[in-house]
Design a protein around this nucleic acid. Structure first.
Length: 662
RNA sequence: GCCCUGAUAGCUCAGUGGUAGAGCACUUCCAUGGUAAGGAAGGGGUCGCGAGUUCAAUCCUCGCUCGGGGCUCCA
């Protein structure tokens, strides 16, 4: 019979399988007419067959999914009472969920790895077997979670798609090659590696966690074991090094080491204080942002941190997001001895958003189309009662400062204004050193009642956002159903120095608040029209942006952001005065510069300031003083001696002003 | 919020049912030095907080606070 193999029409014998087609040992599965199949699959006449290599995305998934099966077998070998959840591949690895009496410990992981190695070495074959719902139910009577999946087959199975697909129900048997006996089995749609030996040695169990069955917090929590698996030990090692690199950059660790910020227990969870070094960085970030906003036609406003409840009733926040707000302070209430309210009190809330305040500023006078676009900007501190388990360093906090702006625009300026905003946002992010972006367009989900506003205005707005996004030339990823209830949005995703993506800025259109607050302006023809609101935050929050930049730069901030830009290191004490003069000159030009007068030896000082990641060290001894020069020491450890003082100052100023990294 | 896990000096961490230790940091003194740790002495801890068990708790039990890993959530 004729099939197409890797694009070449080939004659094969009836009943032959993938093992005959591909002798290359890196081929671990087939793609037949677009569907992934085991190597043992027997193609039919006319099939279009592609090889799946272990290093391809599909191949890696198959490897990792197979490793997940071996993990599950290992768990049930050690604890036959463990009930199986699901075990899919994920980015860089896999997990498997188990319902067990006692949660796993890190020591259990080591024992499980050993058990897995034994299974891998025994070279059990993964053998696919079709079954019926009824037969599977009998076979898996002791696996309540699998039974539930059988009932869901083809429906909404979520991550369980690895277990049951839309097609026939299948079970994979792990068969011992020597005895031919079945060692273990699992409900699974496959495909798998031909045998466990092909998993190799490049796997590791990484952590234990809890996870709700089928991702629903109303369901029971299962114990999840995460692992990682790679085609070779080198790749495993590279992965582990990537993890170590990410850990080194962790902004929580660097924040401690570089004395930038902390989260004092006395203040409360998710509430940061910035120390002098973090404080000066934050000031520089904010100052530059203010300057750029000023240049771009934004007007600066201020609003209080608390407000009476009416405001958030009007905005709808109390209705939708009361759970995420700090509870109210009830003021002025008077209660008599019988507990009867004599005087009605008033609830005040900490603000979770700035928009209603800016809206009130818009409403403070009657507005003409000539006032628009009105661009109101504020570093507004907001407070959100984030669930305790979601807090994370500076990237998820309960008190934060948004670089928040609200633009009130007419329908015919909406497009140009959105274009300006997007360009402004991207330009400013580039100045802070992020330059690898893609955009995400979050749109309405048809038929979902949570979205407010006319379909027609959604369509116009979505089309406008899309047009503006495409004009940017950046990659645009759709996010259907991801819109806020009040309008569609573009979010800017930035990739950092080690390739991780962070959601940064958002630009959101809002049809809801102008209506709720009954906003109007007078059009040229004298009629009253409703403006459209654009919400946008560029940093998101200053705290979060600070954390992201810390990780992006791994604490090696470019000179314009570095808390200490220059440190003078005298070769001996007697040269301290000479460096003081230079440092004073630098400070006069706005450079954050000090001289290390401690009685450490010069080598020790260099070590200290290297660890503090100071961009420039200026070293001076007799030779330098005699020639009115200094010796530069750069971050990479390189050295340039005898640089005339004036020239050194110019070089430092140039590096700061150009915002370049050194 | 839920599951697991942790909290000992400013930091990183060791340790014990009989109230504690190291390195770094800090203070003082010596040393005056040319590119990643010079030497000595000294100060510093209600062992996160509160209850309980015990003759005795930093150690065991429970609750709380704060942190870490996940899940869920993220206007």
């Amino acid at each position: 019979m004729k099939v197409s193999v890797a694009g070449v029409s080939t004659e094969i014998e009836q009943g032959s399988d993938g093992f005959g087609l591909f002798t290359d040992k890196t081929v671990v599965a087939l793609r037949v007419n677009g569907e992934l199949r085991d190597l043992a699959h027997k193609p039919q006449d006319g099939d279009v067959i592609e090889a799946v290599h272990i290093s391809s995305p599909d191949g890696l998934n198959i490897l990792r999914h197979s490793a997940a099966h071996v993990l599950a077998q290992a768990v049930q070998n050690i604890n036959p009472e463990a009930k199986l959840g699901i075990g899919p591949p994920v980015t860089d690895g896999f997990y498997y969920d188990f319902d067990v009496e006692t949660p796993f410990t890190p020591e259990d992981l080591r024992a499980l790895e050993k058990q897995m190695q034994r299974i891998v070495q025994s070279g059990q074959r993964f053998v696919r077997r079709s079954t019926t719902d009824e037969a599977a139910r009998q076979e898996l009577a002791n696996e309540p979670y699998k039974l539930e999946l059988i009932g869901l087959k083809g429906g909404d199975v979520g991550d369980g798609a690895a277990e049951v697909g839309a097609g026939e129900l299948t079970i994979y048997d792990n068969i011992d090659p020597a005895s031919g006996s079945t060692q273990w089995k699992d409900l699974c749609r496959g495909p798998h590696l031909p045998n466990t030996r092909m998993i190799g040695q490049a796997f590791s169990l990484t952590r234990v966690a809890a996870a709700y069955w089928r991702g629903n917090e109303k369901n029971k929590q299962l114990q999840r074991i995460y692992g990682t698996a790679w085609p070779s030990k080198d790749e495993l090692k590279a992965y582990q090094e990537r993890m170590a690199e990410a850990a080194k950059r962790d902004h929580r660790k660097l924040g401690q080491e570089l004395d930038l910020f902390s989260f004092p227990e006395e203040i409360g969870s998710g509430l940061a204080v910035f120390h002098p070094k973090g404080g000066v960085m934050r000031k520089v970030m904010e100052d530059y942002s203010r300057q750029r906003h000023e240049e771009s036609g934004y007007e600066f406003v201020y609003s209080p941190h608390i407000t009476k409840s009416n405001l958030f009733e009007a905005s709808g926040h109390l209705q939708w997001y009361a759970d995420g707000m700090f509870p109210p302070m009830r003021l002025d209430e008077e209660i008599d001895e019988d507990g009867v309210v004599r005087k009605q009190g008033q609830d005040y809330y900490l603000k979770p958003m700035n928009c209603p305040f800016h809206i009130l500023i818009f409403k403070s006078q009657s507005r003409s189309y000539r006032d628009l676009p009105l661009r109101l900007f504020e570093f507004g501190s907001v407070y959100r009662y984030e669930k305790s388990g979601t807090l994370h360093g500076l990237t998820r906090v309960r008190g934060m400062t948004q670089d928040d702006a609200h633009l009130f625009v007419t329908p015919d300026t909406m497009e140009s204004e959105l274009t300006n905003v997007l360009n402004f946002v991207l330009g400013l992010l580039r100045d802070y050193g992020l330059d690898d972006f893609y955009l995400e367009l979050s749109t309405k989900e048809d038929g979902n009642p949570k979205f407010v506003g006319d379909d027609s205005i959604w369509q116009t707005a979505t089309a406008t956002l899309e047009k503006v996004a495409l004009q940017s030339g950046l990659e645009l990823v759709p996010d259907p159903g991801g819109a806020a209830f009040y309008g569609p949005k573009i979010s800017v995703q930035a990739r950092d120095a080690i390739g991780r993506t962070w959601q940064m800025s958002t630009i959101q259109l809002d049809f809801n608040l102008p209506q709720r607050f009954d906003l109007e302006y007078t059009a040229p023809d004298g009629t009253r029209q409703r403006p459209i609101m654009i919400h946008r935050a560029l940093f998101g929050s200053v705290e979060r942006f600070f954390g992201v930049l810390t990780e992006h730069y791994a604490g090696h901030f470019p000179p314009w952001l570095a808390p200490v830009q220059v440190v003078g290191v005298p070769v001996a004490n007697e040269f301290g005065d000479y460096l003081d003069e230079i440092a004073a000159k630098l400070r006069k030009r706005g450079v954050r510069s000090t001289v290390d007068h401690s009685d450490d030896r010069m080598q020790k000082k260099i070590l200290n300031h290297t660890k503090a990641k100071v961009p420039f060290m200026l070293i001076a001894g007799g030779q330098d003083r005699d020639s009115n020069a200094v010796s530069f020491r750069f971050r990479d450890g390189s050295q340039e001696n005898g640089v005339p003082v004036e020239k050194a100052i110019e070089r430092i100023l140039e590096a700061i002003e150009s915002k370049t990294q050194v």
